[in-house]
Amino acid sequence: MAKIIVVTSGKGGVGKTTSSAAIGTGLALSGHKTVIVDFDIGLRNLDLIMGCERRVVYDFVNVINGEANLKQTLIKDKRVDNLFILPASQTRDKDALTKEGVEKVLHELAKDFEFILCDSPAGIEAGAMMALYFADEAVVVTNPEVSSVRDSDRILGMLSSKSRRAERGEDAIKEHLLLTRYNPERVAKGEMLSVEDVQEILAIPLIGVIPESQAVLNASNSGQPVTLDQDSDAGQAYLDTVSRLLGNTVDFRFLTVEKKGLLKRIFGG
């Protein structure tokens, strides 16, 4: 049985696509056949973050409309085995995704893949609702900042009332909190909400904390999912997150300020 995981947030710019790319890559690295589906119709960006923007021929909407089949449309990652991308369309209108069409495509993908990661668009419009509708689990990407936390709470409301599981009265979507752009130094100064603060407000289990890191921008600049930068703090934090998603218990890292030695203070680093 394939597991459908939506990566969502409500608010834009908090790291949904970065996280989808990083988690999808991590799952594939762990040997699980994974497809990342870009639900952001009209504003596709997953291809760019994954570095396969020049290999897009057909897209999600083409498949729904029967203009191409999945085999023609899926882009196989060149770096990682078991990893595929289903790109969003760039030009079509947002209503191109129908519930029936999406269900058909997900059903088809489920025959072949262990994990289907749905990269949700921002907002609470049709596209975001479609991305979460069929989900078994949800990764709610949140920044330690007031508007992001509030929007995440709204999305949690949607997950528990507007999903197929909710409509059918099945077990609720399993929700995970992924805190991104976390800056322990600012938290220590009392300038940023802490992990505990955000957890207390949203009241869902924590799956990962990604430190604010130069590695994330470097990764997107070069079209490499940050998980492939395994020396970086963000890359390691995403790998920890993937491991937790797979059911392992992993200690949280990068939550506290790294104490700098005298030499580091003088020479930097």
């Binding site: 509030r150 709470d153 100064k189 009392g190 603060d197």
Partner: peptide, 19 residues
């Protein structure tokens, strides 16, 4: 200085509960 994060938390708790 300590205040902004705790102010944020208080405000969020109120608005989230309300919503």
């Amino acid at each position: 200085k300590k205040k902004s994060a705790s102010t944020a938390k208080e405000r969020l708790q109120i608005i989230v509960a309300h919503e």
